[in-house]
Amino acid sequence: MIDSSQHKGSLLEVDGLSVDYGLKGVSSRAIDRISFELRAGEAVGLVGESGSGKTTTAMAIAGLLSPNARISSGEVRYRGNRLPIDHDAAMRPHRWSETSVVFQGAMNALNPVHRIVKQIAEPCMLKLGMSRGEANARAKELLELVGIPADRGAAYPHELSGGMRQRVMIAMALACRPSLIIGDEPTTALDVITQAQILKLLGELRSRLNIALILITHDLSVVAECCDRVMIMYSGRIVEDGTVAEIFAQPKHPYTRLLIESIPNPASGKKIIRPIPGDPPNLVNRPSGCAFHPRCPSAMGICATELPSLDKFGQGRVACHLHRSSQHDKVAAHA
């Protein structure tokens, strides 16, 4: 196992990362100057509505962007070294050994014609150089670890339930003992009970094995359960970043506040979910200034013209003109 304690700095540093998608000659910016750090073993949630750029951020970090994507600024450093995220072949040694991914909808993410044990054993053979026998043995161990009897390894993906398949994905993600797992809405297609079980499993395993986690979801309550920290994304930008406790207790960004208010809370007897009024922004023609201003209940004059920078605020960071600490009056230094 990789001992991450010897690395004093961050495991992952994302620095000013922007990604554009080209489609039929039109280019649209999916994520815009994203910056954050992740410590070894830390679990951070990435939350935002559909199209806010969560998957794009995750795929950029894993070097798995689709061919029509272009990294237009910034870089990603892993243990202090720059990752060649725009170079497929150069990323190969890094993949799965260091960063693995649990995709949404394991039905399609697993190859339908291979037995699951073979799919879990594959990276062990190819990346760790195990023999077929060793790899199969390890695959069975991993299956047991995620709560699937080893003899079910002979099954094909379609013979398993949705929850079981997602467990297989998790076992597969653990195969090469990575230091970072990215979960892209790993529980979206599952029922609530299975969802809770899978999240519990993922949370337990990663803290036991000291693996960092980036958990993508648009459900804040999921984050509350198994993350230390949460980053809120809106229209391709991080708008707030803080510990889970802090953000739930004291959300600073108006969008975060609305998100938290929209979580149904049976305890407080609040039944009516209040959706956030207005439409998600158009990426090709993003609103000027703060992209949230057309929907923001606290919008001010400056909001439509000036982009609020993501500044330190208390323990975390927030990008909103309501919360500007004085030393950051010079707007968006690294624009």
Partner: peptide, 17 residues
Amino acid sequence: TEDYMVTARAKGLTGGQ
């Protein structure tokens, strides 16, 4: 274009593999 091909790529397989 299938998702399992993305998985295969994420696993670090070469194009030939």
